[in-house]
Design a protein around this nucleic acid. Structure first.
Lengths: 348, 348
DNA sequence: CGGTCATGTGGCATCGATCCCACAGAGCAT
DNA sequence: ATGCTCTGTGGGATCGATGCCACATGACCG
């Protein structure tokens, strides 16, 4: 029976700073100073300690550290659905920015459910995260975190106006620009396909649509605002209804990428050619919109930038907890593609 | 000066179990038992403690708990690029499964960089995660974690054959099926567009392609295997080169969704009609492939299922650290769409 | 009435890292 | 010599929750 040398890394338990200190022949205090760089340590001692740590494969126990320091270097990121590219890009931007600034990220996908969301933030509180970036679905979430004195940045949509920082895009202005684009092409009957009204995103997009119509002196026709469910099929059915009639709109403004997909499929099913028979503008540019023929004109919001900005805001807030709350409004741009053209029966 | 009642939640620090115990008029031990449910507590006492906890907004300190218990209920998930839908779906599947099983997730996007990857796993070790699910880019990552005695499950690609559990799909078989589909349609000159060979994914897809050709008795022509970079532009250029010649292939098998996008764009630029002038099969089905006309025939792998399976494997491993390592191979299916048809000059 | 058991409760050490404080020794000026 | 500063090190309390163990109470039996 060969006996392997007792390798503290491969065999025993995980090394602690006490073991590092013993191996280096110093006290725990000195080892701690040598490794963290806080306080005096003679150079040769520092080297000895570092060597011992690496020999033992020592990695600091973040639990013990933050218990003592009463603070962590991690933030919580909460999104509604990672499978949706918008949230995925948002999360990626946030996570990378956090890493860059020396924080680790706890990311939770709450599936858009209020219950899961509350469970998620409880986990964040338990982990004593330094702050949270979230696309919430109820105002309770932010309220709960603020009661626990944990800074929050709401992203994409606002629920707690003024009570916390936020990062959003100019939904109203972008929706107005998209609608104006259609008006300038000569469209007069423009349908708005929209899934909800409770969040600032939906409400503001609708307001922007109305703004543009009013500015053009066009009466706001209630039947052209089409409420629908949140998934592709619901949107497809709703679009089919509104596009079937003889007096159908000449253009559709879809308030998000899912609704745009539904509209696109409905048009194909009805044999409507885009843009000859129907113009289409989408809110939220996603890859398929530039892959199809013709490409879909869309409002492009930079989700990654929103994530980065949110983390930046959060860390600013952590650095100065008493500053006034701030809302960062990012701009979005309209990407013109082939799906929008003057209506067939119009001469400009 | 009005003096507000001293509200422990809104004002002071975060409540500790000691404060809960005092408010309930019991000892810390009893409070702990009442809240965790381990050990005897009389029913009225339990209620009093729970009430006190909720009055104070008490949330357990996960740091202190896991320091004491020497274990955590969180796992690390490491992916290469959240902006890529494949990884986003994988992460979503993993995260949801973990939540379902009572674990929290630390998710890190390492941008496909070996350095970031090592930093990420150091953070995981520091947080004392119970295990890690990762799409790694070097064998070092897994090795490092295993040395720290942290269970690892490699997903999508394997680097540490046999040393740890893994969840992959049947790349070779799926690539074989995709190639065979083209052969059955009558194609004989089939190009393979591929970006790398170092990972098991690329290597196995290539092997599957070769398998199918050999089985059909078709000589493997070296010039039809086209190596390219990893982004859309590189793929587009490479595809343009191979599709330009007179003696061009009648079909292209793109080894992932990015390469398929490049091929699609190159074909459009060259005025090649799909499927009349060129058939296209992709590995990894993504939404645009069913939005464009014609739809793109593709091997669909269920990334969410891979994430779920990986977390399941990880928790199995945590439950039984000494079991033999296991590799779960998920199947993928070929979705036939309009982009594949018999070559123009062939009569079947 | 003493002993045993079941049911509850509290004291206290413990997890690992940090950091305040005390102190040692060296160098230097008074 | 005494007092002072500067550099460097170690002792020990501390963070919050847990869970072992000892002990208290009451019921019940022999």
């Amino acid at each position: 029976m060969r006996s392997a040398p007792p390798d503290p890394v491969t065999l025993g338990r995980r090394a602690t700073i006490k073991e590092v200190a013993e191996l280096a022949g110093v006290s725990r205090s000195t080892a701690s100073r040598a490794l963290t760089g806080n306080g005096y340590v003679a150079e040769p001692v520092r080297l000895r300690v570092r060597q011992a740590a690496s020999d033992l494969g020592y990695v600091v126990d973040a639990m013990a550290r933050s218990l003592k320091q009463q603070s962590t270097r991690s933030i919580g990121v909460l999104v509604s659905d990672l499978r949706n590219e918008f949230y995925a890009n948002l999360a990626a931007g946030a996570s990378r920015q956090a890493t860059r600034l020396g924080y680790t990220t706890m990311l939770i996908d709450d599936q858009g459910s209020a219950e899961d969301e509350m469970a998620a933030v409880e986990a964040f509180v338990a982990m004593r995260v330094a702050g949270v970036v979230a696309t919430t679905v109820t105002p309770d979430t932010t309220r709960f975190l603020l009661r626990q004195r944990i800074p929050v940045v709401e992203v994409d949509r606002r629920f707690s106006d003024g009570d916390c920082d936020a990062v959003v895009i100019d939904n109203r202005g972008s929706a107005r620009a998209a609608t104006r684009h259609l008006l300038e092409l000569g469209h007069r009957r423009i349908a708005l396909l929209i899934d909800e009204d409770d969040w600032t995103t939906g409400r503001e997009r609708r307001e922007g649509y109305v703004d543009a119509l009013e500015a053009a002196g066009i009466p706001h026709e209630e039947s052209l605002v089409v409420p629908t469910g949140w998934d592709v099929d619901a949107a497809r059915h709703a679009a089919r209804e509104v596009l079937r009639g003889a007096h159908r709109p000449t253009a559709v403004f879809a308030a998000n990428n899912v609704l745009a997909e539904g509209t696109w499929r409905a048009a194909a099913e009805l044999g409507l050619r885009i843009p000859e028979n129907l113009s289409l503008v989408a809110f939220d540019d996603v890859p398929w919109m530039s892959m199809v023929t013709p490409g879909v004109t869309a409002v492009a919001q930079d989700a990654g930038a929103m994530g980065r900005a949110a983390v930046q805001s959060l860390l600013d807030r952590i650095a100065d907890p008493d500053a006034g709350t701030r809302t960062v409004v990012l701009s979005a741009s309209l990407r013109r593609r082939g799906s929008t053209a003057p209506p067939a029966d119009t001469v400009l």
